[in-house]
Design a binder for these strands. Structure first.
Lengths: 199, 199, 199, 199
DNA sequence: AATGAATGAGCCTTCATTCAT
DNA sequence: AATGAATGAAGGCTCATTCAT
C-alpha cells in the first residue's frame, strides 16, 4: 500500500506533528514504549486518535521521531558545554562539567534511553536511525574538540568511547544505586580517565 | 492469597522449570519480552501453557529467572579468565582477554542485555534483581583481582567502572557498527584505560 | 489511573450502550453471569468485543447496569398498579393484582433475580447497588400507598415485608412447583396476610 | 462414558468423601461456587486433586451433596425448636424462636443459600434436588406442628409460606441493612403474621 | 484535515479435568 | 485407592489501527 502519510507543510500541521512527538517523548520516557498507547499519546498531544495516523505510519514511526529529539536533547547541551569551555582548556574541569550535565540529562531521559536501546536491538530501522544520528554527533564533537585545541590521534574513537563511558557512569549513578559504591570517588576516576584520554 | 507456585524438588520438575527458563531466555533474546508470548514459551519448552503458571507466578517472573542465568552466562566466563590468568599478571593481556570474551558473549546476549536493561527501567522488581546480582559479581571480581595480586585503592569502584566500560565497548562493537570507527584501535585504547586503572 | 469509560452523550451512543445492557440482561437471565462471556454479549448486542470496554469498566459493570433495569422492570409495573387502583381501595383486590403481576414478572425475570441475589452476596458493589435501588423503591411505594389512602404505623417496614413476601410467593409459584402445594389456596392466604398488614 | 464414580463402602472412604463435601460446603459458603476451585476444595479436605474425581463426577456433583447437608444444617435446628417448644404452645414465642434461629443460621449460610438458589435456576439437577429436599422438610414440619397441637386448614401451604417469610426476613436482616428500617419492629410484625397464620 | 467511536486479533491467565506413576 | 503434575480450552481485557462522519 502506498504511504498515505502527509508531509505537513502548513505551519499548523507541523506544530501538531511536533506536539505528537513531544507527547510521545514524554510518555515513552515516563512509562516506556509498551507502557504507552496511542490513545494516550493523542490525548496528551491534544489531538484526535485518528490524526496520529495522518502524520505517522504507525506507533513505531513516532518512536523514530522521538529518537531524533532525544538525541538532540541529550547531546546538544554537551556540545554547548564543550563549545563554551573557557580557554585555555582545563581538561579535568571540562570532563567534570560534561559528566555532571550528562547525569542531569540522564535523570530526565534514562527510561527513554533504555527503551530506545532495547528497541534498537529488535528493530532494524530504529537501530539504523540510532547509528546515523550518533554518527553526526560524534563527528560534530570531534570537530569541536579540535576547535578548542584538543589534539590527539584516533579522535573519533576516543570521542565515542568517552561518550560511552560517561553515559555508562551517568546511568550507574542515576539508576543502580549500589550502596557500597562511592559515586563521588568514582566520578573522579572517570574524570581522570577522560583527562588521560585527551591530554 | 498465598502463592501457589510449586517449588520443584524432584529432578524432573527442576528440569522442566529450567526448560521453561531456557525457552524464555531464547525467545526474549530473539524477539524481546513484549515480542514473546507465554504460549510460545510453553511451546518452545515443550510443555503446556498451564504448567508455566505452575512454576512461575507470571510472565515477568520468568524474566526474573532469565535474568539470573543471563548474569551467570555473562560474568562467569569472565571470572574464569581472571582466575586462570597466568602469573605474574600482564594487565594489558588480561584486559584484552576480558574484552574479547565480553564481545563474544555479547554477540550471543546483546539483545537480551538490552531487553533486560530496558525492563529494569520500568519494573522495580527487575531492577532490584539486577542490582543485587551485580553486587555479588562486583564483590567476587574484586576478590579475584586481589587474589591475583592486583592492589589498588577504590577497587570496587574501579571494578564496576571497568565492567561498564568493557560492556559498553562490546556493545559498540557488536551492534552499532559505525563505519568510521576503527574498532581494533578502539580496543587498544580501552585496554590502555584498564591498565591505567588497575596498575 | 483515571477511568476511560465514555459517558455517551450522543443518542447513537446511548442506544449502543443500552443494546449492550439489554444483551447482558438477556444472557444473564438465560445462562447466568458465569455462563455468559463478553464476546457473547457483544455478539448479541451487535457490537465488537472491544467497544464493550468503551462503555463499561468490566463485565461486572454491565451487571450493575442490568441490575438497574431489572429493578425497573420488576417494580415499575407494581407501582403502576397501585397508582391506578380504583377508589375506594379494595385491599384484597389490590393484593391480588400485585401478586398476579409479580408472578407474571417473575416468570420473565426469575433467573436473573437469583443470579443477581447470588452475586450480591459475593460482590459488595452489586450489593450496594441493590440496596440503594431497593431503598428508592420502598420509599416510593410507601408514598403511593399513603396517597391512595392506606394509613398504618410502620409503613416502611410493612411495605418492605410485603414486597418480600410477594416476591417469595411468586418465586415459589414460578419455580419450585411442589406438587403437593395448592398454589391457588396459597395465594389467597398471602392476600389475607397483606390485607391484615395494611388494614 | 459409564460412570466410574465409586460408591465408597469402606469407612475410611466414606469419611474422605464427607471431608470433601465439608470442604465444599465451607468454600462455597465463603466465596461462592465460582469463587471456589477444585484444587482448593481438595486442599481444604486434605486429599489430592485427583481423588476428588474418584468420589464425584464433577464439581457440580459436589455442590449437589453440599446442598443436602445445607438443608440439614438449616432446617434441623428449626425442627428441634418446634419439637421442644413448651406445652401449651405460645405461638408468638415459638415464632420468635424460629425467627431468631433462622437469622442465626442465615448469618452462617446466607452466601451458600444464594449460591444454591442461583444455580438452581440454571441447573435442572440442582433445582430438582432442592425441591425434593424441601418437600421432605415441609412434610416433617407439618407433622410436627400437628403433633404439638397446632391445627389449621391448608397446613402445608401455610408451613411453606411461613418458611419463606421467615427466610426472607432473615435475609433482610442479615444482608440488606436498609438504614431506615427498624428491624425489631419488623420482627414483631412478622411474628404477628405467623401467629395469625397458625392460630 | 480531523474526529473518536469502533474493530477484532491477540495476550495473559485460570481451572475443571485427566493421567502417568 | 491415591497423588499432584500436566493439559489446553476458554475467558476477560487491551490496544494498534481503521473508518464513518
Amino acid at each position: 500500500m502506498a504511504s498515505n502519510i502527509r508531509v505537513p507543510q502548513q505551519e499548523r500541521s507541523i506544530e501538531k506533528k511536533n506536539k505528537i512527538i513531544q507527547a510521545g517523548y514524554e510518555l515513552f520516557s515516563e512509562v516506556g514504549y509498551y507502557g504507552t498507547n496511542t490513545v494516550e499519546i493523542a490525548k496528551r498531544a491534544g489531538v484526535s486518535t485518528g490524526i496520529v495516523y495522518g502524520y505517522f505510519e504507525d506507533k513505531r514511526d513516532i518512536l523514530i521521531c522521538v529518537l531524533e529529539i532525544y538525541i538532540d536533547k541529550v547531546y546538544k547541551p554537551l556540545a554547548h558545554i564543550i563549545d563554551h569551555s573557557p580557554q585555555p582548556v582545563d581538561l579535568y574541569r571540562l570532563a567534570l562539567s560534561v559528566i555532571d550535565k550528562t547525569i542531569e540529562l540522564h535523570e530526565q531521559n534514562a527510561k527513554l534511553h533504555n527503551t530506545l536501546h532495547s528497541l534498537a536491538t529488535t528493530d532494524e530501522a530504529v537501530n539504523a536511525q540510532f547509528i546515523s544520528l550518533e554518527n553526526k554527533i560524534t563527528e560534530q564533537m570531534s570537530k569541536q574538540l579540535l576547535k578548542i585545541g584538543i589534539k590527539t590521534d584516533n579522535i573519533t574513537e576516543k570521542v565515542h568511547l568517552a561518550m560511552n563511558i560517561v553515559q555508562s557512569f551517568a546511568h550507574e549513578t542515576v539508576f543502580d544505586s549500589h550502596s557500597y559504591i562511592d559515586y563521588e570517588q568514582m566520578k573522579k576516576i572517570v574524570c581522570n580517565i577522560l583527562v588521560e584520554l585527551f591530554k
